[in-house]
Design a protein around this nucleic acid. Structure first.
Lengths: 350, 350
DNA sequence: ATGAAAGCGCTAACAC
DNA sequence: GTGTTAGCGCTTTCAT
């Protein structure tokens, strides 16, 4: 605000209009008990001198800032940006602004942002908690409305919005086994210790066991983070000798890495090896072949999370609602469905 | 903050430590002139009672909030999320937080957010200005540090970071004409009235004229916004009868729409019709065929914009720097380069 | 090396 | 209907 000459304050308006500060305050906040003519006059002066209320001063006084803190992994990841969009749209409708932060899934960053947001007196926070966040968060939930999105922390009394990760992975795996007859299924999963990752892997294995298929360790790669990790894991799988019929990646970044690797080795999808993944995203439409995915309602997740947060902020309801949204299987080309049926146009299943 | 019991204040710390408020303030802000033992004691009390400074109160007093407002079109668009990431990373290193808003390129939304951010006393703003923003912004730049990113508004004294849009489109078009011998080039452009859009179109036409090619009106579609618009425009082009050899889309959303349409009509890229676009993005690696693109340094743009903003905020330098970053041509498969050369691996050109 | 008191811009009792 | 005044939590002269 270095540039600001002296911004007019409520006091200036009062003086100029020849009324008291409180009267101006009443006009600004649209309260009753102001004579219409007085209101007119004040409004006119406000316009004339270009007065704008100072939300910081108001925030200090009211102990309410109309801002919420949002900490996600990386805004550059489509899944998170969809969530943030959902949050913002809903927050806007309630006149809140959002303070955004990227944790890169690193605990120290997340912690630091939480501290900053606390100091900035946000009215609440929506967080994708990193591994190990439990300890530092425990004392915080007592003084600040909190909601988890995408992941949750067991044993912590915080409302959360997640997706049925286990069920989604289970259903997709079942599709691979039943509808395609695949038995050699490679699996590339993301960060160990994260609930989404563990649940998806559990769903995958559940389907395998159910059909009496023994997982081949050589083609199961855990704990990957980036596109490059996806590339490398795929490479290792290709080199392993246990040539799988299909590769299942547990998020979109890994899927991209896998596609890249398959392409690099001139392995055609789905003819040579099929490919499926958890996570859909807008640009997936541009992918060839179209990816068969477990789709998450990311935008919706943001909305629901915000709703859960407002329940705490505005109704002061100290609750512990755990919302689990359903995933959706979207059958496209990469699983091999298109090979069976020339006229295949894809389809969905809730 | 509804949940907060009474948060301890600087006063509580002072009382508990048996010193004055000012001494505590000195400790918090790491100022000198505090006896080491006193400092120790205060620090201990702070920890004990869990005191956290109130940035709102400090902001009111200092007239500085360490927050900056960022208004982009849509965080869901990879180009913008990259920019925001660049902004955030740099802002963080200077201890600022960012308030994020999506304008959807709609003037009334942008205006509203600017008003909110002004009231929230942000220290500065980085904006992707919508069409027609000039009028309402004019009085604002006098009182608030501002930087434009991606687009600029001519005649307004605001520092900006853009890319050489005309040159980029010109070079890519030249590649299509010279290296591929294409003469029937379709063009699908985004929003009319936006500098990026106009400049790209100008670069496209410049190359055409230079080689004596007359644009075919039927296959030039202006003013598109969404993936669906890209789909529709492509459909119209296909239906037009003037079958082009290549389609040039002016941003990534339109490219995805175009791919979708081409796929829908079983037109193979680049064999039947080639496709190129402005805008690269991380997930483009998953696209088949790989898109030949004019790449923009989006992350860098965010960084530079933030730097320009801090120059104003911290050095109070009222300047008017217009930074124009270079684009990069990335030759991949979709233009047809891969058809010429079996061993083609793509390449770049600054 | 430390403290008392004023004030940032606003809202809210409580008067009148 | 309207005004006076205190105070939100902090920083900052200016004393001491």
């Amino acid at each position: 605000m270095s540039k600001m000459g002296k911004q007019p304050t409520i006091k200036d308006v009062a003086k100029e209009a020849g009324v008291s500060i409180k009267t101006v305050s009443r006009v600004i906040n649209n309260q009753r008990d102001v004579k219409p003519e007085t209101r007119e006059k004040v409004l006119k002066i406000i316009k004339e001198i270009g007065y704008q209320p100072n939300a910081i001063a108001r925030g200090l006084r009211m102990k309410k800032t109309y801002s919420i803190g949002v900490i996600i992994g990386d805004i550059t990841n489509n899944f998170y940006s969809d969530i943030v969009r959902g949050i913002e749209d809903f927050a806007l409708s309630k006149n809140y602004s959002i303070l955004l932060a990227n944790s890169d899934e690193m605990l120290f960053k997340e912690k630091m942002y939480v501290k900053v947001f606390l100091e900035k007196q946000v009215d609440g926070m929506i967080i994708v908690p990193s591994v190990g966040a439990k300890d530092y968060l425990k004392p915080i939930l007592k003084k600040m409305p909190l909601v988890f999105v995408d992941r949750e922390i067991e044993g912590l009394n915080v409302p959360s919005v997640t997706v049925d990760n286990e069920e989604g992975a289970y259903e997709l795996t079942k599709h691979l086994i039943i509808d395609h007859g695949y038995t050699k299924i490679a699996y590339i999963s993301h960060t160990i210790g994260v609930t989404t990752s563990e649940k998806r892997y559990a769903g995958f294995k559940k389907a395998l066991y159910e059909f009496g298929i023994t997982p081949i360790e050589e083609i199961i790669k855990l704990n990957n983070k980036t596109i490059e990790d996806g590339f490398n894991a795929t490479q290792e799988i290709i080199m392993s000798g246990y040539r799988p019929q299909v590769i299942f990646t547990s998020n979109n970044l890994l899927a991209v890495g896998a596609m890249k690797a398959l392409k690099y080795y001139s392995i055609e999808v789905p003819r040579d090896i099929a490919l499926v993944t958890f996570d859909d995203f807008k640009l997936a439409e541009g992918f060839r072949p179209h990816l068969t995915v477990v789709s998450q309602p990311s935008y919706e997740m943001g909305k629901v999370a915000t709703n859960l947060l407002f329940k705490q902020i505005e109704e002061n309801a100290i609750q512990n609602e755990k919302v689990v949204l359903p995933t959706k299987l979207i059958f496209r080309e990469s699983c091999g469905c298109s090979l069976f049926n020339k006229n295949f146009r894809g389809g969905e299943k809730a």
